[in-house]
Amino acid sequence: MKNPAALFLLALIFVTALIWAMTNLTPADVSSRFQTFATIFLGIFIEAMPFLVAGSLVSGIIAEFVDQGALVHFVPDNPLAAALIGALLGFAFPVCECGVVPVTRRLYGKGVPLAMGISFLLAAPVINPIVLASTFTAFGWGDVLFWRFGGTLAIAFLVGLLFTLFRPERVLRPMPLPAPTLLLPTVAVLEKCIPEVAESEMSRDEEEMTAREGNGRWWRALAAAGDDFLDMGRYLVIGSMLAAAMQTIVPQATLVVLGEGALLSVIVLMALAFVLSICSTVDAFVALSFVHSFSIGAIVSFLVFGPMVDIKSALMFLGVFRRRAVALLIMLPLIFSLLLGLLVNLYG
């Protein structure tokens, strides 16, 4: 069977039956666990979804309204400057780790250099006014705030620079290629389906066309946003499911018991940050509850590493970068955050 719509419907029926069976036919302890899993999954997804929508809309607007030539002209040639600007770009696009991925992908489509995109991707979820405010609210003016922002900036800048060692085509997944031949039948079909469109194509007067074109560009930006949401959303769904499954299956105590010592505590909280996949706008409040059982370095690593890499964002990276690049994008922040945590614990 090659018809994707039929495959989709078949699979939909199968999954519906499976979920129904898990809820209604399994023993009480399994079904209540499944219910808890569903609640946590929907919690993470519903919480993150508006941010992904916002990121997709920004991306759609960039796609339609930002002129590629102008942007490339504006970007510095020097990789140092590009990485630095990328790391600070979050103040212009305040997005969290769900929204940042589609925006980054779109910026790459517009010809932004590799280093700048990577630094933006890693830094923006923290280096923005919203997260600055929430971290300040939770921890006040002090070490944690300083190390979180300084550390994130430094790591995003460094990783961005390191990526200049690679050729972009080895790092980035290819974008969908132009296929102009495909457009023509689409037009024909549309004209048949929607009389309004067909009509508009016929009566075009110069002024009227510009007006409609203005509206049309907005609708096209929205459709591009929709495609971005569908593209990235599936990684968000899988990531939220993994995080929810971890929370329902693995007892938190097994992680927390390990939480002593300068090195071990850092590793444990970083693992927790990866697994929990909490949105960067609020993770400071969650970190507060670790203050008395974990070292300051561990908390800093939690707040630096979590927004850069967690289960759901790591999966979303796969929509932009090649697999090896994703592995590097996980490993480099991991190593640097670990070192940062140790540094804070030993000398901070």
């Binding site: 979804m49 508006p50 929508v53 689409t186 609708w219 096209r220 459709a223 946003a225």
Partner: peptide
């Protein structure tokens, strides 16, 4: 937002 982008597929100019 998702309702709007969902409907936009039918509103965007065809070419």
């Amino acid at each position: 937002g998702v309702l709007l982008v969902g409907l936009s597929y039918y509103r965007q100019p065809p070419h």
